[in-house]
């Protein structure tokens, strides 16, 4: 069943790359070895969403932590607002780093997903092993025009999720993965 030819991935790969930012290409060069895969980075929507959520929640918390003791006890106690603010700044940077670390590549026979800054993880899922491809999109994600693609194999430990994709790209990926999975289906 290994009829997959590299040409298959050609158009789709470039199409996918074209849809995302140019940065994808330059980023990919770092992790690729030899004839390396074409890495595709996540679109900036996810970064925007996570940072906005972070600012909104920690902003509210720091407001509460600053105002309540500040008004009840004394102005100096408003310093309680500082830790959440520091956390917000730290989170802002961390979310950026984490977002930059996410990338995926469709190769002829398998899908690569690489992520993580401190704890790095790189997953390889052969197309033939995919049981199910899922596109999910929660209310917040939908508001930001995002969708995530999740691959399921027969192994529950396979944690192959690509979050924060453009819905069109997510659907393209889903269809493409399904198609490739059929062509290379290998059961259990």
């Amino acid at each position: 069943m290994e009829t997959g030819s590299p040409q298959d991935t050609g158009p789709a790969g470039t199409q996918g790359a074209a849809k995302t930012r140019d940065a994808a290409g330059t980023q990919g060069a770092a992790g690729a070895a030899g004839d390396g895969p074409v890495w595709i980075a996540l679109p900036p929507g996810l970064l925007k969403m996570r940072r906005l959520l972070l600012v909104v929640w920690l902003g509210l918390i720091s407001l509460a932590a600053g105002l309540v003791p500040g008004l009840l006890v004394g102005p100096a106690w408003a310093a309680f607002a500082l830790p959440p603010l520091a956390l917000m700044v730290w989170g802002w940077v961390m979310i950026g780093r984490n977002w930059r670390s996410w990338r995926y590549a469709e190769r002829a026979d398998d899908l690569l997903i690489s992520r993580g800054v401190l704890w790095r993880e790189e997953t390889v899922v052969p197309y033939g092993r995919m049981q199910l491809v899922e596109v999910t999109s929660g209310p917040v994600e939908r508001h930001f025009g995002l969708a995530s693609v999740q691959l399921h194999t027969a192994a529950a430990a396979t944690d192959a999720t690509i979050p924060g994709l453009d819905p069109a790209e997510a659907e393209r990926l889903r269809d493409r993965l399904t198609e490739l999975g059929e062509a290379r289906s290998a059961g259990l």
């Binding site: 401190l118 704890w119 993880e121 790189e122 390889v124 192994a155």
Partner: peptide, 15 residues
């Protein structure tokens, strides 16, 4: 033939 997916993980200490 029974491998469904392969992962490589690396923590900071390991790196």
């Amino acid at each position: 033939a029974k491998v469904q997916s392969v992962r490589m993980t690396q923590g900071p200490w390991e790196r």
